[in-house]
Design a protein around this nucleic acid. Structure first.
Length: 470
RNA sequence: GUCCCCAUCGUCUAGCGGUUAGGACACCGCCCUUUCACGGCGGUAACCGGGGUUCAAGUCCCCGUGGGGACGCCA
């Protein structure tokens, strides 16, 4: 039997990072077993579902790189089918109309809580003989009264729930529209899902769904419930912990590969290996190795992974993802040094693509002022003289290469009898505007001769003016 | 409150009855170094508590405790 898995988000907001992790597990399980991965949009709640959210999910899936073989399938397109199954359940005697009002239900729950009981529907309308036509009614599934439901969870192991804990859940609202627990069951069955991989906030729904599947005479799929991701305060990860929308990670400068890698290792491991490319993820992943305990999201480690990717990914791939940030930050790199060479010079010191894009600006655009701290610290009384000397040496250069530039700088050091520590920093600030850059020879080589000389002249003038005013 | 799940360094984890309890992030040293980083080497740091089972328990069982989840005409 072909393995079939799905990711079934409801479009009521952005694509959550926790959702991405269960999607990843589903995707990996399908890919590993040569199966199919389906994207299904659970939009039966028309009040809260929005087109923007649908777009956000689609955009997120594309950016993160989880490709699906079927879908997106919208549940709102399948209402006829749900109505059919609801009718079947009614005909079989496995469902019934319930006329209890919301007020009655609220009161019932309140009383149960007061009695320290678990709030559940008391089955008042369960055995009503004569359907009362014309009165507003919901339809409830007739859950078995006794016996146990056993879930052989691939991640959590055996979970046993007694039917006494369950109640007759609503499968159709009074307006006739189907509810979640009914639609998932119908869809997972119709779409021939073999493995239901989802967050463990659904474990409580699973026995109900199993009961419905049984009532429909279906063969049960396998279940795997992955634990939630927690924020650093031990609470379920949410907006107040920072970034939870997957697209926020793009905006913050992360590679989708790094995010995926991080999410994979959060709650799963393969020996001591930390870095996994797509092929390795698929090869080594095993749903049964997923940790049953919830884990805490740690941005520091994600940043570390991202650094590893910046350092090692082929330059073209770095460019492909960096471009979005360059555009976003309005930096045009067409006139200036080859972007690939600039990346090579900077990749060992950037944590994120956003940061990388921001730090390479001086290769392509002139800066209007020096970093305040840097100029204060490195532009001293003698600086104008030093920079003038370097300027002369560099001007005389025929070949604008890292090694010749390096020789010229050293010549200045010797001539003025100064250490590199006296010359380098001032030169760096003069040419880049800041106290941080790759090694000077490489930096100047990339900035180019014309720009370098121009900036040096400006710096000499600046240094002279600075002390003339005192 | 009731039911379900979970429990190894601060964090992510390895461990699947016998280990000096391993790795990674973070942190702290040292080295490298023209800045900032990268990198290299080293260090601090954990089996929630109590009972069992066993020659032997981080590993198996039970009870506590702690944390998470669920209890909607949401999904």
């Amino acid at each position: 039997m072909t393995v079939r898995t799905r990711f079934a988000p409801s479009p009521t907001g952005y694509l959550h990072i926790g959702g991405v992790r269960t999607a990843l597990y589903s995707w990996l399980h399908a890919r590993k077993n040569g199966g199919k991965f389906v994207l299904r949009i659970e939009d039966t709640d028309r009040e809260r579902s929005t087109q923007e959210s649908v777009d956000a999910i689609l955009e997120g899936m594309e950016w993160i790189g989880l490709d699906y073989d079927e879908g997106p399938i919208f549940q709102t397109d399948r209402f006829d089918r749900y109505a059919e199954v609801i009718q079947q359940l009614l005909d079989q005697g496995d469902a019934y109309h319930c006329y209890c009002t919301r007020e009655e239900l609220d009161e019932m729950r309140e009383q149960q809580r007061a009695n320290k009981e678990k709030p559940r529907y008391n089955g008042k309308c369960r055995d009503l003989k004569d359907p009362k036509d014309g009165r507003e009614a919901v339809i409830r599934f007739k859950n078995p009264v006794d016996g146990d439901v056993v879930i052989d969870d691939l991640i959590k192991g055996k979970i046993v729930i007694n039917n006494r804990e369950l109640d007759d859940l609503i499968i159709a609202r009074s307006d006739g529209t189907p509810t979640y627990n009914l639609t998932v069951v119908v869809d997972d069955l119709d779409m021939k899902m073999t493995h239901i991989i989802r967050g463990d906030d659904h474990v409580n729904n699973t026995p109900r769904q199993i009961n419905m599947m049984k009532a429909l005479g279906a063969e049960l799929p396998k279940f795997a419930h992955a634990p939630m991701i927690l924020g650093d305060d031990g609470k379920r990860l949410s907006k107040r912990h920072g970034a939870v929308s997957v697209m926020q990670y793009r905006d913050d400068g992360f590679f989708p590969q790094a995010v995926l890698n991080y999410l994979l290792r959060l709650g799963w491991s393969h020996g001591d290996q930390e870095i996994f490319n797509r092929e390795e993820m698929i090869e080594f992943f095993n749903i049964e190795n997923v940790n049953g305990a919830p884990s805490t999201f740690n941005t520091q480690k994600l940043i570390w992974l991202n650094e590893q990717y910046i350092k090692t990914l082929p330059v073209n791939e770095v460019i492909a993802h960096l471009q979005w940030h360059l555009d976003n930050q309005n930096l045009d790199t067409t006139n200036g040094p080859a972007l690939g060479e600039v990346i090579e010079a900077h990749r060992d010191r950037a944590k994120t693509l956003k940061e990388l894009a921001a730090t390479i600006r001086y290769y392509y655009e002139d800066f209007s002022e020096y970093d305040e701290k840097a100029s204060k610290k490195h532009f001293k009384t003698a600086t104008a003289n030093i920079l003038q000397n370097v300027l002369d040496k560099l001007t005389a250069l025929d070949s604008w290469q890292a090694d010749s530039i390096n020789n010229a700088i050293k010549a200045t050091c010797e001539e003025l009898e100064l250490g590199m520590g006296k010359v380098g920093p001032a030169l760096r600030v003069a040419v880049t505007g800041s106290a941080v850059s790759p090694s000077l020879d490489i930096t100047l080589a990339l900035v180019g001769k014309d720009k370098t000389l121009e900036r040096l002249k400006a710096a000499v003038a600046f240094a002279i003016a600075k002390y003339a005013n005192l």
